[in-house]
Design a protein around this nucleic acid. Structure first.
Lengths: 194, 194
DNA sequence: GTCTATACCGCGATAGAC
DNA sequence: GTCTATCGCGGTATAGAC
């Protein structure tokens, strides 16, 4: 791993554990196996490490990747689709780097670092767009009849809340996946055209 | 206001703005209108200010106070009740000190300060208990039939998420109350015994 | 691009007079 | 219970050799 990537990687871990302000450049350097001053060959400041870290993360591993063919095939059976989609979301969110990233964004939410405004919405924007797309399609096909905006929130917010409240503490338990499944079934039961 | 209360009050504001670690005892002293060293006549350390602040807040202004008679009278018409209850919750959460407290808990969530473990759940435990009580009663009276645990989460998590995502930035907009009302109607529409 | 050495500052906390 | 004065540490960041 290149030094720059190494710095970003250990910084994510440290920021997530201790918070951005409470993490020192010295700690980062030690964890990256270099001297403090060498950090400044890669970043102009501690702030810049955070900014680059967040920019990087938002581009790598996009949520849409979990929408593979296998999952899209299930769209003909919506309850199956929502159950599986929820599970894939939770699986993605349970990856260590995702847990760390969630932790970091929460702890710095609505703080302004240079030009960057950190907000919880960073964690969920893309997922919202995807679900809105899917529900819009379902509405066109008369599978559902309520407002797409409302349904998107009704489906996603319980999952989002699981991410924020229950998935920021490892290890992640099977019961969390059970919760998500129950919610998904309840959701479809209520919104399908009767 | 006594000095001790003043310190707690300005600390909440500062911690919520800059984060606990990034707020200095000097800033607190300046905002409280005293010298740094005088802080230590009231608290043994900066950590202790945070601990006392959180302990205090959890005891003052309990959620159950919003369950006044007027609201309880509406229980005979559940959709009215849930709409009003949601509105009262949001009103409470929109008070400046509540917004600041939310901000603080989020930014320090799952950090351990001395013996105190900070968690998002602090923000929601009491509300969950109250709603569970109400739904249990409704189930006894055959107004609903689904599992109380599931319904509690289905009703509350969208509201909780509004608090975390939308109410940590002032000013708070009428559209947020509209969202909550839509959700409350949708919820009751789906859970009432058919 | 890494190192050693160091500048300079603000931090939390304490001592002791009033 | 407030103040002035001060301590010692650890913080970010830079200079300049290799």
């Amino acid at each position: 791993m290149k030094t720059r990537e190494k710095i970003i990687s250990v910084s994510l871990k440290l920021f997530s554990n201790y918070g951005f302000a409470a993490t020192s450049v010295r700690q980062i350097a030690a964890a990256a196996g270099i001297r403090e001053s060498s950090i400044y060959n890669h970043f102009h400041s501690k702030d810049e490490i955070l900014i680059e870290l967040i920019k990087n993360h938002s581009q790598l591993n996009p949520v849409r990747e979990i929408l593979n063919e296998e999952l899209l095939d299930k769209l003909s059976n919506p309850v199956d689709f929502f159950v599986s989609f929820s599970e894939e979301l939770l699986k993605k969110w349970s990856l260590p780097e995702e847990v760390q990233f969630t932790h970091l964004i929460l702890s710095e939410h609505f703080r302004n670092i240079g030009e960057l405004k950190i907000s919880i919405s960073i964690l969920f924007e893309e997922t919202r767009k995807i679900v809105k797309l899917i529900l819009t399609e379902m509405k066109k096909n008369k599978l559902i009849e309520d407002e797409v905006e409302l349904l998107t929130e009704e489906y996603l917010t319980p999952l989002f809340f699981i991410r924020l409240e229950k998935m920021t503490l490892l290890p992640i338990d099977q019961s969390i996946f059970d919760l998500a499944q129950k919610h998904s079934r309840f959701f479809w039961q209520n919104v399908k055209r009767r």
